[in-house]
Design a protein around this nucleic acid. Structure first.
Length: 527
DNA sequence: CAGGCGTTGCTGGA
DNA sequence: TCCAGCAACGCCTG
């Protein structure tokens, strides 16, 4: 039994939930006072008027709102348990170090986080806490496996293919063990001393009062919403059992073809372990079900795969000095990047997806593939890091490990190398949505374009454009590149880059890259 | 060193 | 809905 009057601090970052929260469960044990804390870091939350979209320097307003909603929900749940969420403002390590002292904290609990930002922050806080005799408890509970365990099991390096990951990982023993969905009650919050605390702010209070409602995502944050969404998703047992990721329809938007649980997993509003157990429950009660990699459990394992590779790969978020990343002389064409980012490529399928990203902060996995391929190896040959930055800002489910992993995947920089398989910005969407309803919804300027032309409106006769009240080059842009020639050029560039990577065993100097770039440009001019 | 395989390509034909 | 043909990658296994 702990000393009477001892205080614990539960530091929420991700893991914004009550259910299956090992750090919270440990924090309340034997504590007379519990301080549940979230720190608002101005660096992450302060409005940045110079950014290309409403939001802070790091995050678009949709993700900030999603986070605030998640905090409000967490606060409500804590209040029902006799506690509350304490919101602090400032640089997290400084603030926390001060609170630990001011509140005479004996035990500090927070979920272990593999992202570089938290790795750096947590070392500082941990070292300080330990040095003054505070117990620190920082469990792995964001993923099904502990990435460090898998890397160790694999001989010190992360497995680099999904199949080898599955083999090394084996059964997720921890993820199968019992978990608690509720907490009976929480110790009271103690005195705040001289620390300035506040309630969860709203968007206006943070300085985002002028954002148009029309541009806000339909997805609401929070644990309650996550559990509701989960229940709705698994209610249809047949759908869960037959789920095959590649068969989903990327153009479905009023009823998306996936669970849309990714933003809740990202913030930890939903425990991946609880999700996993719910899926296993469904599988037990059906005759047959799909399997990884395409099944829903397979999707959770993808998440763990990318977390593991990201944790074990230095400079995972860049091409340079990243040992798993092919060295490719991508261009640095800002005009092409901006056309892509601002949904002005002239390819309606691509521009509709980029508009959905901007407005909703979410789009179907295959839609992400299409625009990522188009920006990098498919058409524009722009650096994957540039596209990664745009996704990182605008997606409500943006996740450091998964986002970087997928951009390397789609750009054929790592994991996937069949660069001649290119998504067509015209025919891929047409397969699912021949009438172009998705385009009509997100690009209303094209809503009256006949279906014969909606995927390639520049081919419509002028009379048709006039009748549709959409003149190409006036109301909607002409294509920034011709897909046929652009994709052929990209394939050739990839082939040359791969050949040099192989020849030099992946170790290209800056001079090698300059020479290769010059050679590729020369080849292009000679065409 | 060869052969099989890899979450989800495209086109055209049956 | 499924298939072959297209041109053809790196990684893993034996």
């Amino acid at each position: 039994m702990a000393v009477s009057g001892s205080s614990s601090l539960m530091w929420f970052r991700k893991g914004l939930r009550i259910h299956d929260n090992p750090a919270l469960e440990h924090a309340l044990k034997g504590s007379s006072f519990l301080y549940p804390v979230f720190v608002i870091d101005p660096h992450y939350m302060k409005p940045d008027p110079t950014a290309f979209s409403p939001g802070s320097n790091r995050a678009g307003v949709n993700r900030i709102r999603f986070l605030l909603e998640s905090l409000v929900d967490l606060d409500l749940s804590l209040k029902k348990l006799g506690s509350r969420l304490i919101v602090l403002n400032g640089e997290p390590s400084q603030i926390l170090i001060r609170c630990l002292k001011e509140w005479d904290v004996k035990k500090l609990c927070f979920e272990f986080d593999t992202d570089p930002y938290y790795q750096g922050l947590d070392v500082k806080v941990k070292e300080h806490a330990s040095s003054i005799g505070i117990e620190v408890f920082s469990p792995v509970s964001h993923t099904l496996f502990n990435p460090a365990d898998i890397i160790q099991k694999n001989g010190g390096k992360p497995p680099l293919s999904y199949q080898s990951f599955l083999k090394v990982a084996g059964q997720p023993a921890w993820a199968c063990s019992p978990l608690s969905m509720t907490i009976p009650s929480l110790p009271p919050v103690g005195d705040f001393g001289s620390c300035e605390v506040s309630e969860v702010p709203n968007l206006e209070e943070l300085g985002y009062g002028n954002v148009e409602q029309d541009d806000l995502t339909p997805f609401r944050g929070g644990e309650s919403e996550a559990l509701k969404r989960l229940r709705d998703s698994i209610a249809d047992k047949k759908w869960v059992a037959n789920f095959e990721k590649p068969k989903g329809d990327p153009s479905a938007f009023s009823k998306p073809a996936t669970t849309v649980l990714s933003p809740y997993l990202k913030f930890g509003c939903l425990s991946s372990r609880y999700f996993y157990q719910c899926l296993q429950d469904v599988y037990k009660n059906v005759q047959k079900h799909t399997s990884p990699p395409v099944s829903l459990v397979g999707q959770l394992l993808w998440r763990d795969f990318f977390y593991t590779v990201a944790f074990g790969t230095p400079n995972f978020d860049q091409m340079k000095d990243n040992r798993i990343c092919k060295q490719i002389p991508w261009n640095d064409d800002n005009e092409l990047l901006v056309a892509w980012r601002e949904a002005r490529t002239g390819y309606p399928w691509i521009d509709a997806i980029m508009t959905q990203l901007r407005k909703w902060g979410w789009m179907h996995h295959l839609a992400r593939h299409c625009v990522a391929c188009f920006l990098t190896r498919g058409d524009l040959f722009v650096h994957w890091e540039k596209g990664r930055d745009v996704f990182d800002r605008l997606l409500i489910d943006s996740d450091w490990a998964i986002n970087n992993g997928n951009w390397m995947w789609l750009s054929c920089s790592s994991f996937f190398y069949q660069y001649y398989r290119i998504y067509s910005p015209i025919s891929f969407g047409k397969k699912y949505d021949p009438n172009g309803n998705y385009i009509r919804h997100f690009l209303p300027v094209l809503k009256d374009m006949p279906k014969e032309y909606i995927y390639e409106p520049w081919t419509a006769p002028l009379s048709v454009q006039t009748k549709a009240k959409c003149i190409i080059g006036v109301h909607y842009p002409k294509p920034v590149v011709a897909h046929d020639t652009a994709s052929k050029g990209c394939k050739r560039k990839l082939a040359e880059s791969y050949a040099l990577n192989q020849k030099l065993n992946g170790k290209l100097t800056e001079e090698d890259m300059r020479n290769l770039r010059r050679k590729l440009e020369k080849d292009q001019d000679e065409e």
